[in-house]
Design a protein around this nucleic acid. Structure first.
Length: 206
DNA sequence: TTCAGGATGTACT
DNA sequence: GTACATCCTGAAC
């Protein structure tokens, strides 16, 4: 599969969010094990105009510094004290924008991902666990062993611990409002959340 | 199947 | 001190 390079991320954030659906996210563990997932849900965050973005209005803090990095950088932060969220930085360096990866499906080494999530093999998961495997940003990071230790990684380095490759193109793409940003005033209604029609019959609740 | 509540710690006011 | 781009559990239906 073809590695996505800097040019892929150096574009309009909403476009990148749509184009990431179906792509293969590759996480290389310390021992060389490759965990591969197909991206099934994304959200766009655009600091220039978006009150839901941590760097709205170009606000620079130690946490948001990664959002000002070059496109193709991983932005990972801690949320609610115990979970992590994975984002890909987009647009030219200095434009604080990113795509949140909200959901995925296991492609390879599913048993290792299942062990990280539920401490069991995929075949041993309950029906409830199968339906709630990687369908949320915190769940995805848990399954792929992503924490703030991976914040700032270069996604365009094929020898790095995290990168993205081409994948099977999705069919029709659906759009909707973003999740968990009720504080963001007019931005709560921006239809910047995307998922392939075939992934869900109705918009997932989170 | 849905829902309320709690866990938990960092960033920022 | 307050808010937070979340998730899990257990109870009610």
């Amino acid at each position: 599969m073809e590695l996505l390079g800097r040019d892929f991320y150096n574009r309009d954030t909403v476009t990148v969010a749509r184009d990431l659906l179906g792509k293969h996210l590759v996480r290389v563990l310390e021992d060389g094990t490759e965990l591969v997932c197909r991206i099934t849900e994304t959200e766009a965050y655009v600091g220039r105009i978006d009150k839901a973005c941590h760097a709205y209005g170009y606000k620079r803090t130690p946490r948001t510094e990664t959002l000002f990095a070059p496109p193709g950088t991983a932005y990972i932060y801690l949320i609610y004290g115990m979970y992590h969220c994975l984002n890909f930085v987009t647009e030219p360096e200095g434009e604080p924008s990113a795509v949140l990866i909200r959901g995925a499906q296991a492609v390879t080494n599913g048993d290792i991902i299942a062990k990280n999530r539920f401490n069991c093999k995929m075949a041993e998961m309950t029906a409830y666990q199968r339906n709630n495997f990687l369908n949320g940003p915190g769940k995805l990071c848990r399954g792929l062993v992503l924490t703030r230790a991976q914040n700032g990684l270069d996604l365009t380095d094929p020898r790095g611990a995290l990168y993205v490759c081409d994948g099977p193109a999705p069919g029709r793409i659906q759009a909707g409002k973003r999740i968990g940003i009720d504080y963001a005033q007019e931005a709560v209604d921006f239809p910047w959340r995307f998922w392939p029609e075939e992934s869900f019959s109705v918009p997932p609740s989170g």
